[in-house]
Design a protein around this nucleic acid. Structure first.
Lengths: 206, 206
DNA sequence: CTCTAAGTAGACAGGTCGGTCTACTTAGAG
DNA sequence: CTCTAAGTAGACCGACCTGTCTACTTAGAG
């Protein structure tokens, strides 16, 4: 594997499990077995390495989620499938995403709290990209634009809440709970209008 | 003011706005004007100071939220009022809580990711305490126990999601969006059963 | 008046931080 | 064969980290 990739992967795993400020470049080098000069040959500073780990995680996470959503029939199913995927992630059934330690982008935003900071903005952009992915599936329901936007934001809200609860409180069933809530909302007149089927019988949790 | 309190308040503000690992004790001392010996007289280590800031924030936050919920009529209103309070917090209309930088406990959990760690556990305990506060208001609706528990968890889910979105993405209206969703859920047959009023007309956002 | 607890300023120790640098070693392209 | 880009190990720099320590000051209790 190319040294640059190796550094980014190693740095990501360390940053994700221990926090970004808590991990020094010397540890990344020791874990990866790469020389310091090589790191600074590819990245002008630790900051750039951090940004590379953000892009790396963004790419992996989006690819994983997008792949999951193509594996179910079109319609409501992909929207609910988001939360099946989250459930797998929380319960460490997705080795590709590393052992669950919450959302890397939420964590990074906590360490780089200033919204003007490049790293915080990169995290926000990831969230926007995820929202756009979700929106593309909501659009398949052929709803009015404002309705589609509201449902997209609802799903994002539930996703963020479930991820946070799973990490901080250890409520590993938060994804399925969010799924049941979404299912109910999607079946309610005020949300998507008549014409969609009722909730999936065996997923009722509320 | 007692030096111990001054240290905790100063440390909290710095930790909250810049991150815990990013702030050294020397900065806390410089900002507070307290001598280093005094800090280590009251706290055996930085770790203990961090734990004190967690307890401090826990106390302040719970007192603020509890106070807000007593200012509306009993019934559904306090549950919706949670999100009015969050909306004020996100938009910096609550000076007592410091300038909004997300949830301090989520942020701290990101920096102390190991769930066995005392600081992470203290954060989880705060969330549990908040959930119990909410639960006490849900109980006023006189619902079956499992229903009440589900609604409590739903509210917590929405609260966490809104807080995270407000911080990372800057969606400062997330609280009102969550409120509208809760309002709808509380009015839906499957959630609390018949007998409760419909959604508040002018808060419909979905 | 005396004793004590809590405070001050700031030097210091041992370690880690991000980052630079020298000197040397590959491996592949022209 | 030669040149270059990318790699190695690791010494080194100044800055900052947590935490300890000396020496002195202050305020209140007995």
């Amino acid at each position: 594997m190319e040294k640059q990739d190796l550094l980014v992967r190693t740095a990501f795993t360390l940053f994700y499990s221990r926090g970004i400020h808590a991990v020094g470049v010397n540890l990344v080098l020791a874990e990866s077995g790469v020389a310091k000069k090589t790191l600074y040959h590819h990245f002008p500073s630790k900051e750039h390495l951090i940004e590379a780990t953000i892009r790396y995680r963004d790419h992996r996470y989006r690819a994983w989620l997008a792949s999951r959503l193509t594996q179910v029939p079109a319609g409501k199913a992909p929207l609910l499938e988001i939360f099946n995927a989250l459930d797998d992630w929380f319960n460490n059934r997705v080795p590709d995403l590393d052992r669950f330690h919450g959302c890397f982008f939420i964590n990074a935003s906590a360490e780089f709290s200033d919204r003007e900071h490049a790293i915080h903005q990169a995290c926000a952009e990831h969230k926007t990209a995820i929202a756009e992915l979700i929106r593309s599936y909501v659009d398949n329901l052929a709803l009015p634009d404002d309705r589609a936007e509201a449902i997209t934001r609802l799903i994002v809200l539930l996703k963020e809440g479930a991820t946070s609860m799973a990490h901080v409180q250890g409520h590993l069933d938060a994804a399925l709970q969010a799924k049941a809530l979404l299912d109910n909302a999607l079946s309610t007149e005020g949300f998507v209008g008549p014409g969609l089927q009722g909730p999936e019988r065996n997923d009722r949790m509320l």
